[in-house]
Computed example of a mutant assay.
Amino acid sequence: MPADLAHIRQVMAEADCIYTEAEVEASICQVADAINSQLADSNPVVFCVMNGGLIFSGKLVPKLNFPLELSYLHATRYRNQTSGGELFWKAKPEISFIDRDVLIIDDILDEGHTLGAIIDFCHHAGARAVHTAVLIDKDHDRKARPELKADFVGLPCVDRYIFGYGMDYKGYWRNAPGIYAIKGM
């Protein structure tokens, strides 16, 4: 069923800007600095989690000033919905990371189901160490694994439904130039 584009446009028109483009860009630079200082000598395999991590990865990876191998994986619980379900693998990693450091780049650490499953997958597949970088860490007490923390975090975020910089609303507005919260959500 095609999207109601009038509704999609209205969502953006009414949204609250949580972080401006300048604030997001500054946070990406800070994340890059932290990764550069901690992983420069580790020869990591870097995975972008599609689709959400695409914009964050695209802005972050060129700021990493050390050799790395880059690939992607695609695991989702949302499938263009506003609430998550069972983990679904669309594309598993194709680069071997046996006895290698792995850096997973994703858009958001919300409840942590998807990121936790990806971390587990990497450990079971032989990664020496698994590091995570997220643009947004949502602040709430619904974490699937309360001990799960991202190693590198761009920005904290209030517990609202957000979109922009890779995060979507029903498949739209990943391209929004900032982080926005849906009115009333």
Rank of each mutant, 00 (worst) to 15 (best):
A3S: 14
H7V: 08
R9F: 14
Q10K: 11
M12F: 15
M12D: 09
A13P: 10
E14M: 09
D16V: 12
D16P: 07
C17K: 13
Y19W: 10
E21S: 06
A22K: 02
I28C: 02
C29V: 15
C29D: 14
A32Q: 07
A32H: 03
D33R: 13
A34T: 04
A34G: 03
Q38K: 07
L39I: 01
L39N: 04
A40C: 08
A40F: 14
A40E: 11
D41H: 13
S42R: 06
S42V: 12
P44L: 01
V45M: 00
V46W: 03
F47V: 00
V49S: 08
N51Y: 07
N51A: 13
L54Q: 11
I55W: 03
F56Q: 09
S57Q: 02
G58R: 00
G58A: 08
G58W: 00
K59W: 01
L60S: 01
P62T: 01
K63Q: 15
L64Q: 05
N65D: 13
F66C: 12
F66Y: 06
P67T: 01
L70V: 04
S71D: 14
Y72V: 10
L73Q: 06
L73A: 10
L73P: 02
A75V: 15
N80Y: 12
N80P: 05
T82Q: 14
S83H: 09
E86G: 05
L87F: 11
L87Y: 10
F88A: 12
W89R: 01
K90F: 14
P93T: 02
I95D: 00
S96V: 00
D99H: 09
D99Y: 01
R100G: 02
D101A: 04
V102A: 01
I104Y: 01
I104C: 06
I105A: 06
D107P: 04
D107F: 08
I108C: 07
L109C: 04
H113Q: 15
L115Q: 08
A117N: 15
I119V: 14
I119M: 12
C122K: 03
H123P: 06
H123C: 08
H124L: 14
H124N: 10
A125D: 15
G126Q: 12
T132Q: 12
T132D: 09
T132M: 07
A133H: 02
V134G: 09
L135C: 03
L135K: 11
D137T: 07
K138C: 09
D139N: 12
D139V: 13
R142W: 04
R142I: 06
R142K: 14
K143S: 06
A144L: 10
A144M: 06
A144F: 11
R145V: 14
P146Q: 09
P146F: 08
P146D: 11
A150E: 07
A150W: 07
D151K: 06
F152E: 03
V153T: 13
V153C: 09
G154V: 00
L155G: 03
P156Y: 01
C157F: 03
Y161N: 03
I162K: 03
F163G: 02
G164W: 07
G166V: 03
M167S: 13
M167Y: 10
K170I: 15
N175D: 12
P177Y: 05
I179G: 10
G184V: 08
M185V: 11
M185K: 14
